[in-house]
């Protein structure tokens, strides 16, 4: 019988109350300094992890708690793989890029997802791919090895495609509503890359190679629009991203993508909040985990800004909250 995730989704419905409400974001944004923001945060779900004002430790523990929920509640291993392999890909990027560019000291990594860091380190020298390494990762490693010019940009390009492919391999099959969220995210990424390529004066073929599969718009279509200066028109015509047309136009004109990033995240958060996710299936659990990831990432930005005494108006240019 197909997994219904009934217990998981019931639990997630109750856990969603722990997400910070808009009012709390307003209060955090209005906090005078990082101490006041910390006091506000101590009264929320994060309070249980906040010891001695160590925010980084708090967020690390919070992320671990959410992942623990994911692993305990998920009735489908594909969901756990889809979520946790994203961090493995990031770790692989740090380790492989550093090793291949002759970085002398051990590189800083994130907590391992499902693949131990030693496996990622030894993958570069192993003649046979380790069994823990997913096929897509082994293929990307082969691609990196076969690169004629081993530049950081070329490695990044392969790893970007790997990150997209790993995500699109496991997650979209879960539910159409969640698949449209992932496709929108991929479109946003592709439009951003294409706009930057245009500003860098790259030709159509070169920019198409940097674009990722998995969005509603094909890379060739986006690259064509970029070369003809029609990116804002194309994004205005893309489902869910209609409002980004003028934002992308301004971003290209001002050569600043801050507003584009913020508006994109606002759209994606909106899709997660109001998207018609099925009650039966893994999508609500996946959406909850991703919402928490966004929340933690935004809190990190907010607290860093408060510590640097950044003005509220400048902070609001980056954060899609409040």
């Amino acid at each position: 019988m197909k997994s219904l995730f009934l217990f998981a989704n019931g639990r997630v419905s109750a856990l969603e109350k722990d997400l910070l409400p808009p009012r709390m974001w307003q209060m955090l944004l209005s906090a005078r300094d990082v101490e006041e923001a910390g006091r506000l945060l101590a009264d929320t779900w994060y309070g249980r992890f906040l010891q001695g004002g160590n925010f980084e430790n708090c967020f690390e523990q919070a992320a671990q708690a959410i992942e623990q929920e994911l692993m305990e509640l998920s009735e489908d291993p594909a969901l756990v793989r889809g979520i946790l392999h994203r961090r493995d890909v990031r770790n692989a990027r740090y380790i492989w890029k550093a090793a291949l560019s002759g970085h002398p000291s051990p590189v800083e990594t994130e907590r391992p997802g499902l693949i131990p860091l030693d496996v990622l380190r030894s993958a570069l020298t192993d003649s046979e791919p380790a069994p823990e390494l997913p096929a897509l990762m082994s293929r990307s490693l082969e691609e990196i090895r076969s690169l004629q010019e081993l530049s950081p940009a070329a490695i990044d390009s392969v790893m970007d495609r790997l990150a997209a492919a790993m995500e699109m391999e496991e997650l979209p099959g879960m539910y159409p509503g969640f698949a449209s969220f992932l496709a929108a995210r991929m479109d946003i990424l592709n439009f951003g890359i294409a706009a930057r390529c245009r500003l860098a004066g790259m030709d159509r073929t070169a920019s198409e190679q940097l674009l990722l599969e998995g969005g509603t718009r094909k890379p060739a279509e986006i690259a064509q629009a970029a070369s003809s200066g029609a990116l804002p028109a194309l994004i205005s015509d893309t489902v869910e991203l209609e409002s980004l047309g003028s934002v992308l136009r301004d971003a290209i004109a001002e050569k600043s993508f801050l507003e584009y990033s913020r508006e994109s995240e606002r759209i994606l958060l909106g899709m997660l909040d109001t998207g018609a996710f099925a009650v039966f299936g893994p999508a609500p659990l996946a959406a909850f985990v991703i919402k928490k990831e966004y929340e933690i990432s935004h809190l990190r930005i907010l607290l860093a800004a408060k510590a640097a005494r950044l003005e509220r108006s400048r902070l609001l240019r980056r954060l899609p909250r409040g």
């Binding site: 219904l4 009934l6 019931g10 639990r11 009650v279």
Partner: peptide, 17 residues
């Protein structure tokens, strides 16, 4: 059975419901 499983999920977080 269906509703019971979903309700058990909620009650595991918030027994007051």
């Amino acid at each position: 059975g269906l509703v019971g499983r979903a309700a058990a999920g909620v009650l595991s977080v918030d027994p007051k419901k």
